[in-house]
Design a protein around this nucleic acid. Structure first.
Lengths: 137, 137
DNA sequence: AAATAGTCCACAAAGTTGGTGGGATAGCTG
DNA sequence: CAGCTATCCCACCAACTTTGTGGACTATTT
C-alpha cells in the first residue's frame, strides 16, 4: 500500500501540474487546498526538490513549481522516490535489489511469480505521468 | 512489499505442498528445513489453519498438512490473508475497500491509475497456485 | 530593515513488524 | 490412568517505521 506520505506527494504534484508554468505556488496554499498537514508537506516537497522534480523560490512571490513538463514526469519515479520499491520482494526489485536469505532465485517459484507481478505493475506505472493524475473520467 | 511473515508463510506452504497427501508435518521440521523461527511459524500456521487453508493434528504423529489440493489454493488468497490488501490504495481495494478522505473517486486520476495496477497484479496472482511455488525454471 | 517563504534539524507519539516465553489443551500409547 | 507429544493460545517485547510537530535559520524581495 502507498503510504500517506506518497498520497500527499501525489496530491501536491497534481495541484502543481494543474498550475504548470504559472509561477510558484505557496506550500501553505497546497496544504490548505489539498488538506495536507503543512509541516509534513514541507518535508515532502523538499524531498521532491532534492530529487530534481520540483524547483523552489524563497521570499515574496516564492513557492514551489514543477521543474519539468508534467508529461515528462513518470508516476513510477514518484512511487520509487517517496514510497520505495515497486516489487513485492527485494529479490525481484530493479531499483532496490537485495538477494533473499536461503532462497535460490533460479529455483524459487515465488521469485518468478513476483517478477511477473512487478512487470505487470511497471507496465502501468511506467506509462503514466503527472498529466494522468488530472484526467477526469 | 511482502512482509517477512508472508514470505515465511509461502516457504511453509511450499514445503507442505511438496508433501501433500503424505500425512502431517511437524512445525519444528518446517522451521528447521525452511529456516523460519519456530514460534513465529507457529502463529503463522495457526492463522492459515483458521483460514481453512491448513489442517492440523495434535499429539504423536501430528502436525500440519494442506486441507485442499495445492492446485486449488490461489496465491492471491494467501497474500490477502497474511499480507493484506493487494491494491496500493484503500479506495481501489476489492477486499479491503475504504474510501479516501477528501478525494472524489470519479475525478481522482490516481485512483484510476491504481485501479489499473490492481487489475494487472490480480491478473497474475489470481492465476497462480501453490503448485507454481514449486516450479523450477 | 522588515516581511516573506523556503530550509534544516531534532524530536516524539502511535502503529506495525518480527519475534519470544510459558502455560493450556487435546490426542495418542502403554 | 499416566505420561508423552504436539498444537493452541495469550501476553508481552524490542526495534523500526510512519506521521507528524516545533523552532530556529537562511535567502529573497520590497
Amino acid at each position: 500500500m502507498l503510504s500517506k506520505k506518497s498520497q500527499y506527494a501525489f496530491k501536491a504534484l497534481a495541484y502543481l501540474a494543474e498550475r504548470y508554468n504559472q509561477g510558484p505556488v505557496l506550500i501553505s496554499e497546497i496544504s490548505a487546498k489539498k488538506k495536507v498537514p503543512l509541516k509534513f508537506l514541507e518535508n515532502i516537497l523538499l524531498e521532491l526538490k532534492k530529487a530534481d522534480i520540483l524547483e523552489s523560490k524563497k521570499g515574496k512571490g516564492g513557492g514551489y513549481y514543477l521543474k519539468k513538463d508534467p508529461a515528462q514526469v513518470k508516476v513510477v519515479t514518484i512511487v520509487r522516490l517517496v514510497n520505495g520499491p515497486v516489487a513485492m520482494l527485494p529479490c525481484v526489485s530493479l531499483n532496490f535489489y537485495k538477494r533473499c536469505d536461503n532462497c535460490d532465485e533460479l529455483s524459487c517459484g515465488l521469485h518468478d511469480i513476483m517478477k511477473q507481478v512487478r512487470d505487470a505493475t511497471l507496465d502501468v506505472l511506467e506509462n503514466k505521468t503527472l498529466v494522468d493524475l488530472l484526467q477526469m473520467k
